[in-house]
Design a protein around this nucleic acid. Structure first.
Length: 554
DNA sequence: GCCGTTTTCGGCCCGACTGTTTTCAGTCG
């Protein structure tokens, strides 16, 4: 496990140096080091003790010295000195939209603004508008960004707790006093973000087992409930109940408040007992169809269950094609072949390489010449028969006017074209909507990528009329992506429902930049399930032959 | 601060957009 505290310190040093106005490349050396440790899961203690840290590219004399000090003493004097000179909380300000290191320095020096609260006050009192470079528009962006950050406080990504949750669950299940245990709450029904982790445990003697695990987990106890928190301060609640109450409790703590309220009314009507062996049994006893956890968000699901209209939701094994992945031809970490072989290992029949297009310069986007060269490599790989078909795709930037990033004679060479917005996020809603619809209108467009551009808990979606976009996709017969990157989950599940209503086909795409994140595609399956999708609604559930015929049309 | 190497210092990812800009610095993806 990489040392998260160290990664944070290195990143903070990088940002603080930028604020100080030091050589930007010196600053980057620190963020690079943090990135290398995080990406490659480097065990710093081991490297330092083995004297091998200096062998890793990116770690020179100065960093080795500082990290050795860190391993030996738990701190870095250089960093301590840095934060005694400038407030560490300035780092938070640089996370606010449009507030880079230079502007952060400016408001610190001119207004004494040291943290986000003080920046917000400066917006409200009007003092910020007196600083050079801050306009009405930019102050509005800052205020929105602060509001979004505050609203996201206490919200966590699903993937930030997966590892912890699985470990804890394993620990509980392996105990001989515990009959069964399951994660419940918003995690189980796959809400976009969660505020806490809930676990329900079945045991014959709840009182004794609660007490026992209070000691093991260093938790606080309230009755037969334990409260603790993960090392990222995510609250955890564990309920210990008797076997006869287990299923009922698990169900009760999984659904949303709205869903459970309606469910309880139904229970009252039917007057059922609480002892069940499974949730399916519970639903059967009510005379309604079983509702999978992902759908237990709103009353609609319960109404449909009464009418026996819960569809067979898509499952991981339905996926046949891995679409929208990047390779080291642009900003990915792995070769095309490495990505393809990993996809094959995960059970996929075909993979569509969709590296960045030429306008995305920072990602090493492909020039027309390099598109040609990549196609030659793909042809060669396909001729070698690696038992997975590789498709020629591209993630084309949607340019300001909605046009795509290559001339027609280049676009026509791709099997699929994913179109995405990567620039000019601050356009007005109507212009952004027009821009994206223009891209959908292109005969070369196959799939709209991450339709709102949001990053969960960190970046708001760009202003866009998503319903109008979905309507346009329906008109033009275009596919919309569920981007399964855990930070994006974009299209969101509620809009997936709308897309399905309009008959728009969906692609579930990992937008993966390395082999280790290809499995993110299965997170997208959860979003799809929450959006009521069946295998027939999702284009990458098609076999290779059908996909070529119906989607690629070549 | 690191790397590569013409072994002592120059180059390090880049292009578009915005602002109170007039030729460039800051931010973003």
């Amino acid at each position: 496990m990489p040392d998260k505290k160290l990664v944070k310190i290195l990143n903070n040093i990088s940002i603080l140096l930028e604020i100080k106005g030091e050589n930007p490349f010196k600053s980057r050396a620190y963020s690079n080091a943090a990135e290398i440790i995080r990406e490659n899961q480097i065990d710093i203690e081991k490297e330092v003790q083995g004297g091998t840290l200096g062998n890793i590219k990116g770690f020179g004399e100065a960093l080795v010295k500082k990290l050795t000090e860190y391993v030996e003493t738990g701190k870095i004097t250089y960093y301590e000195k840095l934060i005694s000179e400038i407030p560490e909380s300035l780092v938070d300000i640089t996370k606010i939209n449009t507030m880079g290191p230079k502007k952060t320095k400016l408001v610190y020096e001119q207004l004494g603004v040291k943290n986000i609260n003080e920046l917000e006050s400066a917006c409200l009192t009007g003092s910020l508008s007196k600083v050079k470079g801050f306009t009405e528009k930019s102050i509005e962006i800052i205020q929105n960004s602060i509001a979004h950050k505050k609203a996201s406080k206490g919200l966590f990504l699903q993937n930030s707790v997966i590892e912890y949750a699985e470990n804890l669950l394993g620990k509980l299940k392996s105990d001989s006093d515990i009959i069964d245990a399951e994660i419940s709450g918003s995690y189980r029904r796959f809400a976009e973000t969660i505020t806490e982790l809930n676990i329900v445990v079945s045991t014959k003697s709840p009182e004794n087992v609660t007490k026992k695990f209070r000691t093991i987990l260093f938790a606080d106890q309230i009755g037969n409930q334990l409260k603790l928190s993960t090392n990222e301060n995510i609250p955890v609640t564990i309920d210990f109940v008797k076997p006869e109450e287990y299923i009922f409790k698990l169900h009760l703590s999984t659904g949303s408040k709205e869903y459970i309220t309606s469910f309880n009314e139904l229970l009252k009507e039917k007057n059922v007992v609480t002892n069940f062996n499974s949730e399916e049994e519970l639903y059967n006893s009510l005379g309604i169809k079983y509702v999978p956890p992902e759908l237990r968000e709103c009353n609609t699901a319960l109404e449909k269950a009464k009418q026996f209209k819960i569809p067979k939701l898509i499952e991981n094994s339905d996926l046949k094609g891995m679409l929208h992945v990047h390779s080291n031809w642009s900003d990915g970490k792995n070769t095309i072949l490495e990505m393809a072989l990993k996809a094959k290992e995960l059970g996929f029949e075909y993979i569509a390489m969709c590296d960045h297009s030429r306008s995305a310069g920072y990602t090493n986007g492909l020039s027309i010449e390099r598109v040609q060269a990549q196609h030659e490599e793909i042809d060669k790989l396909n001729s070698e028969n690696h038992e997975i078909k590789i498709l020629k795709g591209i993630e084309s930037d949607i340019l300001t006017d909605g046009s795509l990033d290559y001339p027609e004679d280049v676009l026509e060479k791709f099997d699929i074209v994913v179109v995405s917005v990567h620039s000019l996020f601050n356009m007005s809603k109507s212009l952004m909507t027009k821009r994206i619809i223009a891209a959908l209108a292109s005969p070369y467009t196959t799939i709209l990528g991450h339709p709102t551009g949001r990053l969960l808990t960190s970046r708001l979606p760009y202003e866009v009329d998503i319903k109008e976009i979905i309507d346009a996709a329906a008109d033009y017969g275009k596919i919309i992506e569920i981007n399964a990157n855990p930070y994006r989950l974009d299209l969101s599940w509620d809009n997936v429902i709308y897309a399905k209503e309009k008959g728009v086909k969906i692609a579930i795409n990992p937008d993966s930049h390395k082999t280790t994140t290809l499995e993110d595609v299965f997170i997208g399956v959860k979003v799809a399930r929450k959006g009521w999708l069946e295998a027939k609604d999702v284009v990458n559930c098609l076999t290779y032959d059908k996909f070529m015929k119906e989607v690629v049309k070549k």
